[in-house]
Computed example of a mutant assay.
Amino acid sequence: MLEHGGKLREAAQRYGRNDWLDLSTGLNPNGYPALAVAPDAWHRLPEHDPALLDAAQCYYRAPRMLAVAGTQAAIQALPRLRVPSRVVVASPSYAEHLHHWSQHGHCTSAVPYDELDAAIDTSDVLVVCNPNNPTGATVPRDTLLEWARRLAARGGWLVVDEAFADTDGAHSVADAAQTPGMLVLRSVGKFFGLAGLRLGFVAAQEDILTQLADLLGPWAVSGPAQQVARAALEDDAWQQATLARLHSAGKRLRALLADHGIASHGTALFQWWPEPHAEAFHEHMAQRGIWVRLFREAARGIRLGLPPDEAGWQRLELALNEWTDR
């Protein structure tokens, strides 16, 4: 398996401590307060709930969606829906995309963001994270729509992973997912902080969603997950309050890093920078019980998520002080 954030059990075993401040995942640290679900959700087979899809399509402004067991399920399945193709994956980005497209007979290449436009006309599929994970870089909406048009002209796909788009949807193309060849992935794990639900959505044309649903099979999303996600997607008051809080926290994190000489980039949920001493920084933080995400390859650097409370902010600031004073 590829390396990801989290893995606190592994960290606890390695460093012999359990008081971790986990900043490694980029998830909302104060997620949606999931309420108790109806008892029958635990005992009945989980039929697809049309009300969940209505809530998702309203929230994401998408014309048609399919619920999946986390966007990871779609990432693993989509390469199986095409004959061998020329696939370009924006680099750096979420590593699971390139990993799975490379496993099903496709000819894959990782292309830097500033070279993607030149790669469109010799590709059948383009995969891009927007905002990017881990750097936070964005591609303008108009550019994505133009790329989709060029790809669709010869039966190609544009796959846009919008897992981190909830805090800034200016460049989202979920509403344009009826465009031929456009596929958009959305997640309730990041903004809503509900990663444990394993629930996401795919927006696309009906024929693609039908093929994907057939491949994933029945009962792909649990009944409890559907009920909790529907409540979160319909809770406009919580969403608006959380947006304001996350934008404030994101600015605070970026300013805190800047105060310590770190020029970072990211979203309201995380900050990333190309740290020249990435391994040393990761170890420095781990020794203080702060778990950050270390990237060793294409996006070599560090990604930090948001602390959950004031004690966490103070702990992070102290560790940063000790890093700059070393």
Rank of each mutant, 00 (worst) to 15 (best):
T167R: 05
F270Q: 06
D19Q: 05
V87N: 09
A268K: 12
H99Y: 11
L2C: 04
G193D: 05
P134M: 01
P134H: 06
A195H: 13
E322N: 14
A73L: 02
V184W: 10
N18P: 00
H265L: 05
M65E: 03
S102L: 00
A268D: 13
A12H: 07
T71N: 13
A74M: 04
W291E: 00
T179Q: 15
Q287P: 06
A118Y: 00
H43M: 13
D166S: 10
P39A: 08
L98H: 13
L257R: 11
P33H: 07
L98P: 00
A137I: 03
P274A: 07
L53K: 03
S222Y: 01
P92M: 00
N133L: 12
M285S: 07
L304S: 06
G136C: 05
A286G: 13
E10T: 11
H4P: 05
C129G: 12
S93Y: 03
V202N: 06
M1N: 07
Q72I: 04
L294I: 02
A213Q: 14
V159Q: 04
R64H: 15
R198T: 03
A95R: 10
L35A: 15
R230K: 15
D325T: 15
H106T: 01
P46F: 05
A56R: 07
L318H: 14
A110F: 00
I290E: 04
E275G: 10
L98E: 08
G189Q: 02
P131D: 02
A12Y: 02
V87C: 12
E234N: 10
A286V: 00
Q314N: 14
A51E: 15
A153F: 02
E206L: 01
P134T: 03
A118P: 03
Q271I: 07
P131H: 09
G155H: 04
F201D: 06
G196S: 12
R149P: 02
D19G: 01
W238L: 00
Y59W: 12
W273E: 09
E310N: 08
A220V: 04
G155T: 02
L78D: 01
V83G: 11
T108F: 01
A90S: 13
G223P: 02
R64F: 09
H277I: 01
M1K: 09
Q13N: 11
W323Y: 14
A244L: 11
A286Q: 11
R154I: 00
I120A: 03
A232P: 11
L183F: 03
H277G: 11
K251T: 11
D168T: 01
R141C: 08
Q57V: 01
A204K: 11
L269T: 04
E115Q: 11
G266C: 07
R293M: 11
R293K: 12
G196M: 03
C107N: 00
V228H: 08
S93T: 14
A195K: 14
V139D: 04
R315G: 10
W313K: 10
R82Y: 05
P46M: 01
A12P: 05
Q271T: 12
I302F: 08
D236E: 15
Q13F: 11
D175T: 13
N321D: 15
L21H: 07
K251M: 06
V139W: 04
F201W: 07
T267P: 10
V83D: 14
H260C: 04
T324I: 14
S109R: 15
V228E: 11
E317S: 13
D142K: 10
L81F: 08
L304H: 09
S172W: 08
L215G: 00
D54R: 15
A38K: 14
